[in-house]
Amino acid sequence: MNAIDLFAGAGGFSTGAQMAGCNVVWAANHWQQAVDTHAANHPDAQHVCQDLHQANWENVPAHDLLLASPCCQGHSKARGKLSGNPQHDASRSTAWAVVSAAEYHRPQFAVIENVPEFVQWSLYPAWRMAMEALGYCVAPHIIDAADHGVPQHRERLFIVATRSKHPLMLQFPLRDRVPASSFIDFDAGKWQPIEKAGRAENTLARIAEGRRIHGHRFISSYYGNERGGRSLNRPVGTVTTRDRHAIIDGDRMRMFSAQECRAAMGFPTDYQLPAQHRLAVHMLGNAVCPPVARDVINALKEAA
């Protein structure tokens, strides 16, 4: 099965598709550094760096499966009061590139990934009707990556669109939860003392509460709602586009390394990342977890 990857980013969707036996023939993103990272890991695919609002779909190879991760920032509740704000209209409009690509090529299958709030978008009913007008049945699935062997709780929406008589509601294998301890290396990284000049009071308070609940080793988030930290025996919370998770070990602490973020996302250990930590974390935080993409595509192939 040949696949294309819209808004491919660092390549999580493409990697999952390859795990499911697909041949990724084309990938596009508007950010050159992401395209370069994708190309380093998927050298056999054609790569394009462009705004997909302006794409010439005639130049895209024929394919059976369209994969797409339109920009999610305009939908995400993580933006608080900015969620759904008109300033993000251009961000949300990237979803229409999926309709445009599907209209030209009419692949048998499409899988679209986004945050669950995507279906609350005021234009989602129109977007769905557009896909249905092209002959697609649309089946939304809410999936937590932790249920697919990824050591991270990450709920995302996967819309399965098929040129079939009825929507396909997929069945997935039950996989064991993988704890954060599976990828944290206490002998590596740049550790700092917890008690040091300039450490924020809120940070110290979160760590103190985490010690009370979990002991001397646990994970503490720099932002979010995990005031008491998280046990190493559970999957970690959602990996984001900037450093979020700190490892606490006695009287020392450090942030996740890019390699630990890569493992928390379910990427292979040999997956190439940008050398700059900030860029690597940003790309990983925007990515699709490859094992989830693998399981969705395998279930789609089995059900079709």
Rank of each mutant, 00 (worst) to 15 (best):
H214Q: 05
T238L: 02
M283F: 15
A90R: 13
Q192C: 06
F118I: 02
R199I: 08
A130R: 08
A68S: 06
A146N: 10
N29K: 02
Q46L: 13
A303Q: 14
R199E: 13
A90M: 02
S93W: 12
A280M: 05
L168K: 07
H53R: 14
A280L: 11
V48Y: 02
A205N: 07
P291C: 15
Q87E: 12
L66N: 02
Q108Y: 00
R92S: 14
F109I: 01
G80A: 08
I159P: 06
W121C: 02
S100V: 00
P86G: 01
H47G: 11
Q120C: 09
W191P: 10
R234W: 03
L284C: 10
N202H: 05
G266E: 03
A95S: 14
A28L: 04
T240K: 13
V119A: 10
S100I: 07
M253S: 11
G229F: 07
I143Q: 08
P179G: 03
F109N: 02
T15R: 06
R92I: 13
S257N: 09
H282G: 13
V98S: 06
E103F: 02
P235E: 14
G210A: 04
Y223N: 05
W31C: 09
L123W: 02
K81E: 15
D270H: 15
Y124R: 07
H141M: 09
T269E: 11
L273D: 15
S182Q: 09
Y223M: 14
A205Y: 10
H148A: 12
V119Q: 09
A299C: 08
G224H: 05
H277I: 12
G21I: 08
A10S: 11
M131H: 04
A101Y: 07
P268L: 03
L284F: 08
F183N: 09
E58F: 02
R242V: 14
R227Y: 13
G189C: 05
N23S: 14
N59L: 10
N2L: 10
T240I: 11
T241D: 14
D243S: 09
D270S: 13
A45I: 07
F172P: 05
P274D: 12
L168H: 13
A293T: 11
H153N: 11
A126W: 08
A34C: 00
V111E: 04
A264Q: 06
G9E: 06
H38P: 05
V60F: 12
M283H: 14
A78C: 00
G149K: 00
A304K: 00
S221W: 08
R234G: 00
I142L: 14
V178S: 05
D243C: 09
P70E: 04
R175W: 05
N233D: 15
M129W: 00
G229M: 10
M253H: 10
P116V: 07
E117P: 04
I213D: 01
A78Y: 00
K77S: 15
P107E: 03
S122Q: 15
D176I: 01
W57C: 00
Y136R: 03
A28G: 14
A8K: 01
H63W: 04
D64G: 12
P116Y: 02
E201Q: 15
A34Y: 10
Y136S: 04
F267R: 01
E58C: 13
M169V: 06
P151D: 00
L66M: 08
A20T: 03
P140L: 06
H105Y: 04
T203R: 13
A161D: 06
T240W: 06
A62Q: 14
